[in-house]
Simulated assay, not measured.
Amino acid sequence: MPDELEKFSCVVPSRTIEPLIAELAGTFKDIAGFSVLVLQVEAVLPEIPELEELSSSPSGERKPPSKLEVFFTRDRISTNELYDDIEASLVLRPNYLLTVVLSALIAALGMRSGQTAVVIGAMIIAPLLGPTMAMAMAATLGDRSLGRRSMVTLTVGILAALAFTFALGMFIEVDPLVAELRNRTIVHPADIALALACGAAGVLAFSQGASLSLVGVMIAVALVPPIAAAGLFFGSGEHILGFRALFLLATNLVCINVAGIVTFLVQGLPPRNWRITSGIFLIWLAILLLFIGLVGGRFAIGGNSPLFSNVTSSAAGTPAAR
């Protein structure tokens, strides 16, 4: 190579990329010009035997991986690749805010008119994958910087969507009894299961290097509709229903993080500090258990608490409910 550099290329299974990069960085990080470029290989001819067969040493210097090591080193892209995939989505660009606002407005209009297909279309364009996945990834790795950036990006996006759907709710008629809106005001156990499944499936697909648009739909299905519904309700004066939609949003966000951390760990993402990772996970889990307790007690306190009362009684004074 130019400048007296040397280039080495190798083909390795996906599950070995993580330890390989760590070993190379530990050995050559102080050498000027050192870099590692990871590319996905679609096909190799002729076929290459498994790495374990190639690396087995007759002298016994390196032991073959145990079944436990093989299980926790899944076929996923490396941590460096995850960082690269998620980095661009954490920058607060005008396009990010514009897309978040447009997706929330489309979802709000779709729910108001009861058009499920329009709501699904809003989820496809919602750019909430990056900050949401980054929160779970930061908690798993114990990366405080990544966690702060993801929280700022996600919070700004949510506030922007709430502000514009709030303005929309002030100028259009909102019927709280429309099924698409009513469903965002009550948290059912099925909603918790859905959010957990979305978080786990999203992380599983993301760690495999799947299409970001596909993974984004899994995350947006749990976040965009509650945000849009809350903005509409607040704008139309239905504050209790707005807070209930925000409760659904908070529940979904907690579920995504709990499922995301667990799935990242199962995928073999190595925490930098287990104390930080376990502490953050226990906090998220405690919040989730609190929310589950509130959902479980909804029917017991529904007649006395306006926050958990029936949507019909909450909207009884509106023209649409008469």
Rank of each mutant, 00 (worst) to 15 (best):
N183Y: 04
A197R: 01
V221L: 15
G237Y: 11
A250T: 04
L212G: 11
A220N: 10
A230F: 12
S207P: 05
V254L: 15
P226N: 10
E180Q: 12
C255S: 13
E180Y: 06
D191Q: 06
L241Q: 00
A205V: 02
A230T: 03
V254S: 13
V221K: 05
D191A: 13
V215Y: 01
V258Q: 04
I256Q: 08
H188Y: 15
G237Q: 06
V254F: 00
F247R: 05
A179D: 11
A190Q: 11
L248F: 01
N183V: 13
A193C: 03
I186A: 11
L253P: 02
V203Q: 09
A220E: 04
A197D: 10
A229H: 03
G202Y: 05
A195V: 05
S207E: 09
L246E: 00
F233G: 05
G231H: 09
S211K: 08
A228F: 10
G216T: 03
N252V: 08
A195S: 13
S213G: 14
A200V: 09
S211Q: 14
V221W: 09
T185V: 12
A245K: 02
P189S: 14
H239S: 09
G237A: 08
V203S: 10
A230C: 07
A228W: 06
L194D: 14
S211R: 13
S213P: 04
I240Q: 07
A197C: 12
L214A: 15
P225W: 07
G237D: 01
A220T: 07
V203N: 08
V224D: 05
C255G: 06
L214K: 08
V254R: 06
L212I: 07
S207V: 12
A222Y: 01
L196I: 09
L196V: 09
L249E: 02
V178K: 07
I186Y: 01
I219F: 01
P226W: 02
I256C: 10
I192L: 15
V187P: 00
T185C: 10
A228H: 07
A220Q: 03
N257L: 15
A259R: 01
G202R: 06
L223R: 02
A228E: 08
A259L: 10
V178P: 00
V215M: 07
L248P: 00
G237V: 00
V217E: 05
A205T: 07
A190Y: 07
I186L: 12
E180C: 07
V217Y: 03
A193K: 02
L181H: 04
L194Q: 11
H188K: 14
L196W: 01
M218S: 09
R244L: 01
A222R: 01
G231L: 09
G199C: 09
F206Y: 13
G242W: 03
A259P: 06
G216L: 05
I192W: 06
L204T: 08
A200L: 11
H188G: 00
A179Y: 12
A210Y: 14
L214E: 11
S207N: 14
F243R: 00
A222H: 01
A245P: 02
A179T: 14
L241Y: 00
V187E: 02
L246R: 06
G235P: 11
L177M: 15
L181S: 05
L249V: 08
L249D: 00
Q208T: 11
